[in-house]
Amino acid sequence: MPPTNSDESRDLAFQEAIDADRTVEPRDWMPERYRSTMVRQIAQHAHSEIIGMQPEGNWITRAPSLRRKAILLAKVQDEAGHGLYLYAAAETLGVERRELTELLITGRQKYSSIFNYPTLTWADVGAIGWLVDGAAITNQLALTKTSYGPYARAMVRICREESFHQRQGFELLSELSRGTAAQHEMAQDAVNRWWWPALMMFGPPDTESPNTAQSMAWKIKRVSNDDLRQRFVDMTVPQAQALALDLPDPQLRWNDARDHYDFGPIDWEEFRQVVSGHGACNAQRIAVRRAADEDGAWVREAARAWEGRQSSRTSAA
């Protein structure tokens, strides 16, 4: 159908509302592209929470103290909660969790590529909490002001928990860094491996980020990739100093003129490889998620059948 005048005026009114900083709510009219962009973004965020349970879940049964085990179990459970909460936000846009899960396990929708790196030692649990949750907070704080109401509200709640996770990760690393020589080395090795991938979490540089302009106009995205990355670096460098751990970047130094830290070039080829499926764990992460879904099918089916029988019993009574 060709666009009519009324479509154009609706588009205009929508943009005006956005410009006036009004949030978009599920029942409001919205351009189809806004809706589909929002669905994709929220779904990918939800998938990231769920896939993100795997690298850390990898260490629950081996956690080196019962206290740390409890903290980690609770954290991974929080991530499941974030996933659920975000799938619910996506559902306000007329899609179902089932369809989105299908898109994830068939590789048609993505998740944050950071989770395609393996957790090789216990220190990786700390590095993920500190750096990956730290980067997530930087991203998500900006998203608390995103234009789609249910997503923005989900971010407020999720950010509170993420900052716990970040503090716990920092504390875990701090204990290792001040611990035995082997523990310190373990912590440094983890930071060496997670630093650059954490910087990649903010996405490609602004000059190569095709979706940014429209997303900024619709206020889906409020701060650009490069600005968020800079915020994260500025926040994290002093924390690394407090941890007595080095960040693996010889070009990292304070720049008085810019009032920011300068940092070295990111290996975008590595980013492209991991995003396009060639990271260490891409296949493994999806296989685990798919197996859980397939192995659980008979359980969900039984629950549905039982539910059905209960409600027909109630209506017969």
Binding site: K69, L73, V76, Q77, A80, G81, G83, A292
Partner: peptide, 29 residues
């Protein structure tokens, strides 16, 4: 119960199994 993490039949059950595991871990401690 913690071994179920990321393998549960649905996300709600992921949360519930972790709750059980956490309760029992607390009692164990």
């Amino acid at each position: 119960l913690a071994e179920w993490t990321t393998h549960a039949p649905e996300l709600e059950e992921e949360m519930a199994l972790a709750n059980l595991a956490l309760d029992l871990l607390g009692q164990a401690r």
